[in-house]
């Protein structure tokens, strides 16, 4: 019997694959899916006192969320900041990847390592370094005052939406650079030459060949930046002040000082849905786009 089972196992590729996958799948189920389900259920409960929760089902937390102007505006602001960061990162990073993919001949790998290296240094420290730069007594202000261009420090630099956007653009750059570079590097250069040969101008070649072919990288970059930035906590907490506060800071509050776990869970669930909708919308529009191209 055991031998028969063993031989069936030996013959079955899916059985082998799933036994190799089982630790990872168990991890995902136990440490992610079950906790997320529990978080979802907590969003339907009520915090009755500081330590007690009423476990009867209610959608009141979601009503609370959308009735609180603060929460809705923080959600909108999170999406807006994230959107701007994604857009700016894409626009600024694309030419760099284009240059490395098409103009750099020697030591491409070195350029790539140098591009991604800052990403591996502590996120907290990268954000913190912007505090040094943008602070009231920071690098920019102190230099400008020293040179005599300013009398008073520029206050809008620090504790503002602008500070958050600049910092996030810097912090997540590597995430945009990698997928963009990979998709540009894959493009067969003879396609571009063929485009020129067939009478397209440089601009037309870019618009009709390079850009569409690098679309997978663009999509990858969009998702990979939007998702973490929409839920970013560190940057707004360190640099945002009241102006640059985002939804995550509120969520932290509900699990901390304010102690309203159900409302925090509801807010987190809403954030998760936002991310899911954006992911689905972006992937769906890519599919449509690539269908139209082929």
């Amino acid at each position: 019997m055991l031998k028969a089972l063993k031989s069936i196992y030996a013959r079955s590729e899916p059985a082998k694959a799933y036994s190799l996958l089982s630790p990872a799948l168990i991890l995902v189920i136990l440490v992610m899916l079950i906790p997320l389900t529990l978080m979802l259920s907590f969003s339907f409960f009520t915090q009755t006192s500081f330590t007690e929760i009423n476990y009867s089902f209610t959608v009141q937390r979601y009503i609370d969320f959308f009735q609180k102007n603060l929460l809705v505006s923080l959600l909108i602001k999170s999406i807006k900041i994230s959107f701007l960061v994604t857009l700016i990162t894409l626009l600024t990073a694309y030419p760099v990847c284009y240059y490395i993919a098409f103009y750099v001949k020697k030591n491409k790998m070195l350029w790539l390592v140098l591009l991604t290296l800052p990403f591996w240094t502590s996120y907290l420290l990268r954000v913190f370094s912007w505090k040094i730069i943008l602070g009231t007594k920071g690098v920019i202000n102190s230099s400008l005052i020293n040179v005599g261009l300013l009398n008073e420090p520029l206050t809008f630099l620090m504790y503002s939406e602008t500070a958050v956007i600049i910092t996030l653009t810097h912090a997540w750059a590597a995430f945009a650079l990698l997928p963009l570079y990979v998709s540009l590097d894959k493009i067969d250069f003879s396609l571009i030459e063929a485009g020129r040969d067939l009478g397209l101008s440089r601009f037309e070649v870019f618009w009709k060949i390079t850009l569409p072919l690098s679309l997978p990288g663009i999509i990858g970059a969009i998702l990979i930046i939007f998702i973490p930035t929409v839920g970013d906590y560190v940057t707004p907490a360190l640099l945002g002040g009241t102006d640059g506060r985002m939804l995550s800071n509120m969520i932290q509050g509900y699990f901390g000082k304010i102690n309203n776990i159900p409302l925090g869970a509801a807010s987190a669930t809403i954030m998760l849905f936002t991310v899911a909708i954006v992911t689905i919308a972006v992937s769906y529009s890519t599919k449509k786009l690539s269908q139209r191209m082929s």
């Binding site: 995902v28 906790p35 997320l36 929409v230 839920g231 969520i251 987190a268």
Partner: peptide, 18 residues
Amino acid sequence: IMMPFLIPEIILAVSLLI
């Protein structure tokens, strides 16, 4: 398996906390 990569970290943190 890639999901933790596609979910804001704060959500993972909060759900684990709960």
